[in-house]
């Protein structure tokens, strides 16, 4: 704990959540959601749209696009909301007035298909400041895990608050 920084810190994130993991929840990956997501991104690869093409290529069903994690996370957070459980963004107290995305990285361990049921979990790794406290960061790690095929995706990312100018 850096006491000097905490005395003057004007951050918004709840730093007591460092090391915490939100409640893992299971989500069902739908064909329609894969198609819609790929289409909006201008991704016309038939692996994300045509069941027949995906089967002909040796896949059991439509393949989720590379950044489909965002959809799985949103579905998981909707389920958490129904159970009155916090999302990672709520847990660390993201403030959308000042929130930006720093970076995001995916490590692909196996394909995600329509029809899969995967467990989404997120852990709060760390908090830190930059630019003399004008920006504060949180780093998160998440996984999507299939009950028999294991971890299919691991992701790390940072979110940040670009803090308003200090008053007084």
């Amino acid at each position: 704990m850096n006491t000097e920084a905490s005395a003057t810190r004007r951050g918004i994130f709840d730093r007591s959540t460092k090391g915490k993991t939100i409640e893992p929840v299971s989500v069902f990956i739908e064909r329609g959601r894969i198609r819609f997501f790929a289409q909006v991104l201008g991704n016309h690869d038939p692996m994300h749209a045509s069941f027949e093409a995906a089967r002909a290529a040796g896949h059991p069903d439509l393949l989720a696009p590379a950044s489909f994690f965002v959809v799985a996370e949103a579905l998981a957070d909707e389920e958490r909301a129904r159970r009155a459980l916090p999302s990672a963004a709520q847990l660390v107290k993201c403030d959308y007035r000042y929130l930006l995305h720093g970076d995001e990285r995916y490590f692909y361990a196996g394909p995600i298909y329509a029809g899969d049921e995967v467990v989404h979990a997120t852990t709060v790794l760390d908090f830190y400041d930059k630019k003399n406290g004008a920006m504060e960061f949180v780093s998160l790690e998440s996984t999507l895990t299939h009950p028999t095929r294991g971890v299919l995706l691991r992701t790390t990312r940072t979110l940040l608050h670009r803090l308003p100018a200090q008053e007084g």
Partner: peptide
């Protein structure tokens, strides 16, 4: 992915 095919991607990251 358009070039390599979506199932050849091992990791991807960006700032």
């Amino acid at each position: 992915t358009r070039w390599a095919g979506p199932d050849r991607l091992r990791d991807f990251g960006a700032r």
